[in-house]
Design a binder for these strands. Structure first.
Lengths: 207, 207
DNA sequence: CTCCCGCTAGAACGAACGCTCTATCCAGTG
DNA sequence: CACTGGATAGAGCGTTCGTTCTAGCGGGAG
C-alpha cells in the first residue's frame, strides 16, 4: 500500500513517490556536503518537493531525515557489496574487485561522493544518538555480509569475524584517503593488501 | 619575533598567544563537530578571543582558519605517531601500539574526538580546494613517517610505500569505525592485522 | 610628550538556517 | 452531493551564520 502496487517490474525510474525522492536527495546531498552542510530547503528543492512535504513525511525533522538517508545509503552499498562478493571466485579476489568498484565510483563523481554514511555520521558525534545508531547499524550490516562470505570460504569463525572488521575499516579508510588525495591508489593498494591478509587465513590452514 | 622570544623552555602552557589559542580551539571544535558544524563565534568564545582577533589573524575567514586547524591537528598526531613508531622494537609491534593509543584517546574523549583532519575535510569536498590540499598534505606526511619506519626495518622500497598507504588508510578507517560503533574493537583488530601484514614483507624476504 | 600600529572589542549587516503554521488541493467514502 | 484526511504549498517565525566595520586599547619609537 505504501509503495509498489503498480508494477514490480525491474526498477522503474519514473513513478517515484515523494517520500522516496526526498530520502534519495537527502542521502546524496549529505554524502557530498555532510549533515550540517546540507539544508532542508536544499533537499526539498533538489527532490522536487516542498518544505511542507518534507515535514509531513519526517515530522522528526532533520535528524529523522538523516537517519532515513543513512538507511538508504546503507541499502545501496549493501546491494553492490553483495553483488561483488558473490561475483568473485574467492574472498581475496572479492576484495580487489570491491576496491576497484569503489575507486571507479569515486573517480566518476570527481572525488566528491565518498561513503554516504561517514559524512553524515561525522560531526554529529555526541549530538544525535539516532544518527549514530543508524551509522553503526550500517557498518554492522556491511560487516555481516563480508563475514558470511568469509565463512563460505571455509575460514574459521573467529578469524572471519575479525577479518570482517578489518575489511570494512580498511575499505572505509582507503575510500576516505582516496577522496582526500584525489587518487585511486589508496583503494587499489588496500584491496591488494586485504587479499593477501585473507589468504593468510584461507582454507590452507594446517596448524 | 612571531612567537618564542620569551622562553623556549619545554612546553609552557600559560603564555599562549591569541593566534595559537584560536587555532587550537578551531582544531578541537572542528574535530568534534566538523567544518560546517563549527561557528567562528563559537571558536572565538572557546579561545577566549574576540571576533575581531579572529579576523585580524585570519583575514581569509573560516577557510583559512580551517587550513590552520588542519595543520595543527596534523602536527599533533605526527608527534604522537613518531613517538610510537620509534618506541616499538619493530614496525609490526608499532602498529599494535599505535592502534592502542588511538583507541585510548577515542575512549577517553567518550568517542567524540576522532581524526582531526577527517571531520574537517569531509563535507568540504568540492567547495574548498585549500582545505582539501591541507588534508591531503597531512595524510601524506603521516604516510611518510610510516614509510621511513618501514624502510628502517629493511623492507623493500616499493613494498614500504604500498604498506604505508594501507597503514594510514586502515588506521583512519578503524578509528572511524571505532568512533561510530563506540568500541575499541575495530582499532585493536586492525592493529593486529596490520602487524601480520607487515610481517609478510619483513626482512625475511629471500626472493 | 606625541604619534603610530598591532591588536582587541563588539555592534551591525544581509543571508541562510530549522521549523511552525495556515491554506489549498484532491482522491476516496458516505 | 458534501465530507474527510493525506498530501502539497509556501509565507514567516526567531535564531544563528560568516563577514564587515568602526572604535578603542597599550606600549615602543621619534
Amino acid at each position: 500500500m505504501k509503495t509498489a502496487e503498480q508494477d514490480p517490474t525491474k526498477d522503474a525510474e519514473r513513478p517515484v513517490g515523494t517520500r522516496e525522492r526526498i530520502v534519495r536527495a537527502a542521502s546524496l546531498l549529505m554524502q557530498r556536503q555532510g549533515y550540517d552542510g546540507t539544508g532542508i530547503k536544499q533537499i526539498s528543492t533538489e527532490a522536487g518537493a516542498t518544505l511542507g512535504s518534507v515535514y509531513h513525511f519526517f515530522p522528526g525533522g532533520k535528524q529523522q531525515l538523516a537517519v532515513a538517508a543513512i538507511g538508504h545509503g546503507e541499502r545501496e552499498f549493501a546491494d553492490e557489496l553483495r553483488l561483488t562478493l558473490d561475483g568473485a571466485a574467492d574472498p581475496a579476489q572479492a576484495m580487489i574487485d570491491c576496491a576497484h568498484r569503489l575507486a571507479e565510483g569515486l573517480r566518476e563523481s570527481d572525488w566528491i561522493e565518498g561513503c554516504p554514511v561517514t559524512s553524515t555520521a561525522l560531526g554529529t558525534a555526541g549530538r544525535a544518538p539516532d544518527i549514530q545508531e543508524a551509522a553503526a547499524a550500517a557498518f554492522a550490516n556491511w560487516r555481516d555480509l563480508v563475514y558470511a562470505r568469509l565463512r563460505r570460504a571455509e575460514i574459521a569463525d573467529d578469524d572471519a569475524r575479525d577479518l570482517a572488521h578489518t575489511v570494512i575499516s580498511t575499505l572505509e579508510g582507503a575510500e576516505l584517503a582516496a577522496q582526500v588525495s584525489r587518487s585511486e591508489r589508496p583503494l587499489l593498494t588496500a584491496g591488494r593488501h586485504l587479499a593477501q591478509l585473507i589468504d593468510l587465513y584461507g582454507p590452507t590452514t594446517d596448524s
